[in-house]
Design a protein around this nucleic acid. Structure first.
Lengths: 228, 228
DNA sequence: GTGCAAAGTTGCACTTAGTGTAAATACGTG
DNA sequence: CACGTATTTACACTAAGTGCAACTTTGCAC
């Protein structure tokens, strides 16, 4: 029965693996919180997660990867939204919609915390970049499936890369302005940044950019003026 | 006398350091060539460079960083070009001009070799991403200096990130099509990719993208239609 | 040139990352 | 419950990365 279930309860074993993985990721974040970046080892995380050091490495290739799993989850969520969009929708509209799903308290919360705790760390930043890059290739794949295999490859990659860049830009500007504030107003601001950034992609980076974007502007790029 | 010289011969000590650094980077590339990715250690590189293991780590924080120095040099070259552009030039024109400097045999050659030798390696890819990301922040700084401190931060970061994404997209598509071919025709194709990609940024990703871009199109986006 | 201080290199010792392997344990199914 | 398989663990090992002190080279003043 479980195999025919579309919600696919993934068998006890799978569940356990997921739980272990999550426990490790949680432990990693807990150590980051309590000791600060660079002041704990894989062994510490493993102990905190109630698991052997070797098991840690069965789940994550490195300490940084365990922390970057937060970012991966965050981006996977957006990716899922993107894949759910109707395939005849202009692709930038889909991108905007997918990114909007990130401006949700439950979703950004871990991401915002990670941001605030890791502000500067080479190895960590590298793993973060890897997560964003992985998301880019996923977008490329999804968009290629949508637009057909004959779509211009340069267009595809430039578009996917730029979408991700705009998402990153919006996130970083937002975080710099609001820190870990997850209030409704703060999240509205994040949404606006995401809309504005995607808007730039739609209309081209031609405007010299307003001095200050006026965070209250009523979604200047929200109308589908840039249909594909 | 040397201190008054504008070409600034940077004192013997600096020269030596530069030479050592280069020797290490060269040795790393040599090892990559001869043994393939993952089949040599920092100690091997140090020996090849005629230097102690400890000294290697005085210059580079990791094996991957030594290899990524190739990418850094490549991107620094473009960055320098960007900074040399007149400050009243539309910024996308500057970006395009800077990227064009990369389509030069001497400049792309090491980059193309690195591309062909590292096709797949987590740690290496991470360091590459780091180099591109560093370049992005440099562009942000340069553009902020040019556009004034009051420019919209979101615009700035989205723009810089998208420029870099387009550069990456053009490079990757080019390399996939031409491999390590550095002939005049191949480089012309790279230039066209770079122009096309920046063109997308100028006009917005609104076109559904031509099925095939027709690599002979006479620089469709070369005219400064997108002046800031 | 001689001597001296600062910069750079090296060897050594040490902690931690990451991986292979085989034994032990937990799980799912009949 | 018992059996086969998936997962965890212990152990051993190589290599990364770092702190430190000794040593060598360089730049500079005399």
């Amino acid at each position: 029965m479980s195999t025919t279930d579309t919600t696919a309860l993934p068998s006890r074993r799978e569940q356990n693996k997921l739980a272990t993985r999550q426990a490790i990721a949680d432990a990693a974040l807990a150590m980051l919180r309590s000791r600060g970046v660079g002041n704990f080892t894989v062994e510490d995380i493993a102990e905190e997660a109630g698991v052997s050091r070797r098991t840690f490495f069965n789940y994550f290739p490195s300490l940084e990867a365990a922390l970057a799993s937060v970012t991966e989850g965050f981006l996977d969520h957006a990716l899922e939204q993107f894949r759910l969009r109707p395939s005849d929708e202009p692709i930038l509209d889909s991108a905007r919609a997918a990114l909007m799903a990130l401006a949700d308290p439950m979703t950004v919360s871990p991401m915002a915390e990670l941001f605030s705790l890791t502000h500067d760390n080479r190895a960590l930043v590298r793993s973060e970049l890897e997560a964003w890059d992985h998301c880019t290739t996923q977008i490329i794949d999804a968009a290629r499936r949508r637009l057909g295999p004959d779509v211009n490859e340069l267009y595809l990659r430039a578009l996917a890369g730029s979408i991700i860049s705009c998402g990153k830009a919006a996130m970083s500007v937002w975080f710099e302005q609001h820190g870990p504030d997850l209030s409704a107003e703060s999240l509205a601001s994040l949404r606006q940044h995401l809309i504005d950034a995607i808007g730039l992609l739609g209309s081209g980076f031609t405007a010299p950019a307003p001095q200050t974007p006026s965070a209250h502007s009523p979604q200047p790029a929200a109308d589908p003026q840039y249909s594909a």
